[in-house]
Design a protein around this nucleic acid. Structure first.
Lengths: 206, 206, 206, 206
DNA sequence: GATGAATGAGTTTTCATTCAT
DNA sequence: TATGAATGAAAACTCATTCAT
């Protein structure tokens, strides 16, 4: 004996249900019935909100990416100083991957997340773009030395996946150490001084 | 009507069939019948060589990783000079991703490639280890400045996925430019001079 | 947002919507939602006017048959002379089948139009009856020679389905020729002279 | 615990099962599981013999039509004399409709039996063609007077559907009488004398 | 070893029908 | 009266897996 609810609420319930089922058993293994059960609705209702499982996955991916990017942007904005912003960017990415450890994996390793899927691209892009802006602005301010911000941003975006729990696999580097190392790598990559005791650069260039 | 063949040959036929089917329609969409058809053997024979589809996928992943790692090691060994080795490592990774564009994607984006799958780890590890050795040796030789080779190697391994055609998605940077940028990034990361006209490092450290 | 309307109008809207949907995609493929959409009413309203899809189909069949029969009766009445009436009957049937080419097919080939459906019988019957009356009256008037008007009417009724576009299938006889041939066949069947140049009968009986 | 059987036997079992289920509950209402149950095989086996329900229906239609046509041809061939052949043709059609009363209806009234279905046309055609040949040959022999055998054959083919139990509906004419009337109608249509006591023709032509 | 017919649980999807508003 | 969100029973179809030959 169901009660009518606003569509946005139902949709959210379905998305929530899907998220938890996906995390629990993966996208491929999750049946639509699992999802509607988790959402507490009947099987048929699913098709009033999504045309297919893929559409649901895509919706979840968008949601995820949007949140990720905005968290990064906020973290960068909150910190003064270019090297600090760079560190904050790295830290924010790490935190985001920690936030819902399995979700990224389950959502983006799925084959549905095809190369050519135009739907997800913007999300990726928004994060690459955030990094690019950081590099370009820092370079313009004389703090960084990056001649091709677009390309470097893209490479660093790839690097960030080292934080993905699924990607880390058996890598047992402690979180703290991994983040510090990444920050140092990012700083060097943009030609900024190492975070603490900046002796490194000098020695090399000497 | 094939007659008896040596087991290793049959297994290879099955792996070849699977590879082509996986590339053609993805791992999830490929049925075991597709695979045995492609291999030119009967359906039942599959079970004599693999316990499940997942085992087959894993075998293919191993094959792939092993080849990848050995290609990288060979490329590194073939070049003299530490910065040159680093560049060669980057270039070899790029070339490997180009070699069978879709195969990596289809094999490793599949959910079967689970986080905790212990079967694939060695392959990852062998490549990370190759990079680590390069960094440690170069540092010992005074050419690089890397204090935590394990961690940096892992991070750079992640960066390398920027070459994955599936990962690149809409990124339209020309191949040549992408490789050059990656080489510069790697050099900087290890504290070596930029490939050409090493002015960058100096300016920053000045 | 339609407000209250007279029931008969609503019912007509529903019937119209159903007719167009049925013609467009067939009875089986048409969903009640298609129909209510086409009618511009809500899904739930359907149940206020029809107890089931079958009831709706039956209603449409009745409508169709009633119109068919009355068109035939009118055509017959409009023409003087018995052979002329017979020709007119044939022509009217042909014209009716042309009128809404697909509708008859879609409505009466549907399984819902079951053998034992007592609902459609009257319609058939009214047409058979029109033919029967024509044969009986013509015979009484000495123009036809039909000893069992009921049975012959029924047989000729069956013959008339040769005009059904769905029945014709790949038959490529031009319309004009088909009608002429049918008229000749009907005339002969009732023992009347061939329409033009009545030599045929004589030769045979000679 | 199934036993392997020759494909043709399995296929026949499936066809037999389908035929009985279709007759029992109609094509639309019959589920594939009903059919496989009736055939005594598992659900999945169906798809090894037919690609879809429609393909099965079509196969049954072909089977039916082929048998129908050959029965008619045999009956016609067995009788000497043109009028006798005509009568035999009518009788054979009637007998065929009696043979599996509901099957024709259930098979051909189904929407799958679409107008444009090229698969069934040959079957129709083979019967029309048998009638056409009869008319043409009889005319050539001077026994019939038919100027357009193709068209008349097609019309008489339509007439024959009066024998279809589903078509007859509430028509209560005794079988015997119906067949006699049809034979008389056919004879008249082709310009041959009435079966018994040929007075009719004479009176009319006089 | 090799085959492929047979199985049947499992999945997505549809849609007539209800009912709280 | 009119609405449309919600239901859930079916139904078609898939495919990994078995096993008699």
């Amino acid at each position: 004996m169901p009660r009518t609810k606003p569509a946005s609420e139902r949709r959210a319930e379905l998305l929530d249900g899907a998220r938890s089922v996906f995390v629990a058993k993966g996208v491929a293994a999750a049946t639509l019935e699992d999802i509607t059960n988790a959402a507490g609705v009947s099987k048929g209702l699913f098709w009033q909100y999504f045309r297919s499982k893929d559409e649901l996955v895509t919706a979840l991916q968008h949601e995820y990416s949007a949140q990720f990017a905005s968290a990064v942007r906020a973290a960068v904005a909150a910190v003064p100083g270019w090297p600090g912003k760079l560190d904050a960017c790295v830290q924010a990415c790490f935190d985001q991957f920690q936030l819902e450890k399995e979700l990224h994996d389950v959502l983006f390793r799925h084959p549905a997340h095809a190369t050519t899927d135009p739907g997800h691209e913007p999300a990726h892009h928004v994060l690459v773009e955030a990094i690019r802006a950081l590099l370009a602005d820092g370079t313009a301010a004389g703090a960084f030395d990056v001649t091709e911000p677009e390309v470097v941003a893209y490479l660093l975006y790839a690097t960030m996946h080292a934080f993905d729990p699924a990607f880390r696999g058996s890598n047992r580097t402690p979180d703290e150490q991994l983040v510090r190392a990444a920050q140092r790598l990012f700083r060097r990559s943009v030609g900024a001084a190492d975070p603490e005791g900046a002796g490194n650069m000098k020695e090399v260039s000497a």
